[in-house]
Design a protein around this nucleic acid. Structure first.
Lengths: 198, 198
DNA sequence: TAAATAAACGGAGGCACCTCCGCTTTAGTG
DNA sequence: CACTAAAGCGGAGGTGCCTCCGTTTATTTA
């Protein structure tokens, strides 16, 4: 509840303009660095690239985990937001497929972070239920619209699709993982479209 | 199987005499430091107190976790060994009580290490099953002897006792935790002795 | 016992973490 | 606009981590 922990103050006093600016930049840069270097990316490097001192980083995010959590929440937010946007700009089935591809990208990012993220999700179970709820909610919307529009078969629901996608998590960490996951999504879509009444 | 990972080579080539000596000292010192300062104790300090260079420590234990694991295994070993010893030197019910008190000490040590240890036990499930198996095995021996000798009631088995002790783990982390746990053990023993035929 | 060699040692050096506090900037007030 | 308190900034510095490699030592062989 009262999400928005990412951008504005959740319920606390609003940050000063410069502070907010710096904070946003830090999260932005951290997201990139975590994605490319893993969660062990150097915090000093993040601060430097964000154009702030290391002290500023630590004031906003007292521990690495705080920063990781905010970045993670922000990405989940983005993923859910993308669902709405795609739904607006594309036919329902295409939106679903595009979203699933994006979901794969998202998971790919997470793979490097596995251990640290697992720790976080264990230690902070709210984080887990929050985010997994939001993600599956977004997906449910897409599946239902596509089914309602007759673009995909109606005898299947979002949790089935989610389950199918779940395989991606557990797939081995081979170099061709990305391609395979992409193919899996296409395959899944074919299955979904087959027997649609539209 | 082929335990003894603590002292001698488990199955590999025997260490050179000096190496073995240093390794033993490191484990010894690390056990003390971990107990007093938590698992985040400085490795350089451990090396120093053991009278070796930091390089030596890292050669034997490439990561902090390796060292923690060895120390942990060693302590479990000690706990199980104590069971035999106590059984030899005391009447069965006294042995059981003393052992449980020692078990409390052992848990007390672990409290500081909670998070790190949880990580270890999650990541390395063999470690968990190994050690918890050994500990409950040791306790089972004590309970059975005491029951067979008629020193405690016979209508209860080791897993019941273990379960009762389990409460210690989950007890809140108050300052008087130690005393309370000690009392819990006594209470438990009274319950066990009550109705013994001896 | 002496020489040869494989194993082990140790600590300097480079990097990252994180705290602390004097300096700078903002937002509010008259 | 000028002033000020409060908020925010940043980076020096102390500490720990870990690698690398020249030196030392135990063991083997002759």
């Amino acid at each position: 509840m009262t999400a928005e922990a990412t951008r504005d103050a959740p319920a606390q006093k609003p940050l000063r303009a410069d502070a907010q600016r710096n904070r946003d930049r830090l999260v932005e840069v951290a997201a990139q660095m975590f994605a490319s270097d893993g969660v062990d990316a150097s915090l000093e490097e993040i601060a430097k690239r964000a154009g702030v001192g290391i002290g500023t980083l630590y004031r906003h995010f007292p521990t690495r985990e705080h920063l990781v959590e905010v970045v993670y929440r922000r990405e989940v937010e983005g993923l859910c937001h993308a669902a709405d946007e795609l739904a607006r700009e594309h036919p329902a089935d295409v939106a679903l497929e595009l979203w699933m591809q994006r979901f794969v990208d998202y998971i790919a990012t997470k793979r490097g972070l596995a251990t640290s993220l697992r720790l976080l999700l264990t230690a902070n179970s709210t984080l887990f239920s929050d985010t997994s709820g939001r993600v599956s909610g977004a997906m449910r919307g897409l599946v239902q619209s596509a089914a309602a529009a007759g673009k995909i078969r109606a005898d299947i629901d979002a949790s089935d699709v989610m389950h199918a996608l779940g395989g991606i998590y557990s797939a081995p960490n081979t170099p061709d993982w990305r391609e395979r996951s992409g193919r899996l999504v296409k395959l899944l879509m074919d299955g979904l479209r087959f027997g649609a009444r539209g």
